[in-house]
């Protein structure tokens, strides 16, 4: 069961990359805001059907939860807007690697301080090294991308 789940999540990662590539293509003709709007609209439609069949939570409890928990939607919007803006300029792989690095760095910070009721996991030696390798990765992807675009224009 476990290995099947891992494969399934692996597929999830694949769809995320495919999404950024497809959205980047669509945005060249339709525009950044328009592409993001369309992604959110179609996503809403699919989830509405999904919830009708498989939802076992309570959407209406939304009115009772603390408001800060609802503020994350602005972050969700920014996330997609920024990705759609970046892909046509720097490409799929540089965007994805850079997003992951931003995600991991903030993840490590949130863990360290235990913000938002999360588990406290202190920033130890291993995680310092992880940060170092992310910076190295960022450097390589920048260099690699620059070289690739020089080769295609040359």
């Amino acid at each position: 069961m476990g290995i099947l789940m891992i494969l399934f999540t692996f597929l999830g990662g694949i769809t995320l990359s495919a999404q950024s590539a497809i959205n980047g293509t669509f945005s060249r003709k339709a525009g950044t805001i328009e592409t993001t709007l369309l992604t959110f609209l179609t996503g809403t439609m699919f989830l509405a059907i999904f919830i009708l069949f498989f939802g076992n939570g309570n959407v209406f409890a939304i009115l009772e939860v603390p408001k800060w928990q609802l503020s994350a939607v602005f972050l969700g919007v920014l996330f997609l807007l920024f990705i759609i803006a970046a892909v046509p300029k720097i490409g799929v792989i540089a965007t994805n690697i850079t997003v992951i690095i931003g995600q991991l760095v903030i993840g490590i910070v949130i863990d360290n301080f235990g913000w938002f009721n999360s588990l406290v996991i202190p920033l130890d030696m291993k995680r310092y090294f992880a940060l170092l390798f992310m910076i190295i990765a960022l450097y390589f992807i920048y260099r690699g991308n620059k070289r690739a675009s020089e080769e295609t224009t040359a």
């Binding site: 969700g76 970046a86 720097i90 965007t95 931003g102 760095v105």
Partner: peptide, 12 residues
């Protein structure tokens, strides 16, 4: 922008 997008995703 991409770094900020990733940061937003973690907070989210």
């Amino acid at each position: 922008l991409a770094l900020l997008a990733g940061a937003a995703l973690s907070f989210e």
